[in-house]
């Protein structure tokens, strides 16, 4: 499943980069993040309770940041499982200079999802993924722009 998106931030790339990769910011902005512990360089163990409306599930997994080139691009690797199913994915994130000192963040995600819930509710999954990604970046945007002022 492809999950793509573009988000604009009212700050320069370095600033956006620093917030996007700040563990505290990650923890605060990942939707439903219950806990997030650093286990190695750029690698975290994470517990999430996420979903749409009342349809939530708890997932345990690993998140790692790889191939990071400040302030241009990085990859985020995710791997998690819970009662509703499992997910594995990679998001390639690029930070591009935009007009007036703003930054455009481009996301190209590729996720594999499975498990019993996917098998009976696959129609909800892609829009849900997109929604969660939007929630994440909008929260980040608030953080970036909030601390910029």
């Amino acid at each position: 499943m492809r999950i793509d998106g573009t988000f604009s931030f009212n700050a320069n790339r370095e600033k956006v980069w620093d917030v996007l990769l700040d563990p505290e910011a990650l923890k605060a902005c990942i939707p439903g993040c219950q806990s997030m512990t650093l286990t190695g360089e750029n690698t975290y163990v994470i517990t999430l309770t996420v979903g749409i409306a009342q349809f939530k599930g708890t997932y345990d997994g690993n998140v790692s940041i790889q191939d990071a080139h400040r302030p241009d691009q990085y990859e985020i690797h995710v791997d998690g499982k819970g009662r509703p199913g499992w997910v594995r994915g990679v998001g390639k994130i690029r930070l591009v200079d935009a007009a007036n000192g703003t930054t455009t963040v481009e996301v190209e995600g590729d996720a594999t999802i499975g498990g019993p819930v996917f098998s009976i509710g696959s129609r909800f999954v892609p829009p849900a993924a997109k929604l969660l990604m939007g929630q994440f970046f909008n929260a980040m945007k608030k953080r970036v722009e909030g601390s910029a002022s």
């Binding site: 498990g115 098998s119 129609r123």
Partner: peptide, 12 residues
């Protein structure tokens, strides 16, 4: 392609 049955209920 991973072997997930997508038509796993009478909804699909």
């Amino acid at each position: 392609e991973n072997g997930q049955l997508l038509s796993g209920s009478l909804m699909d």
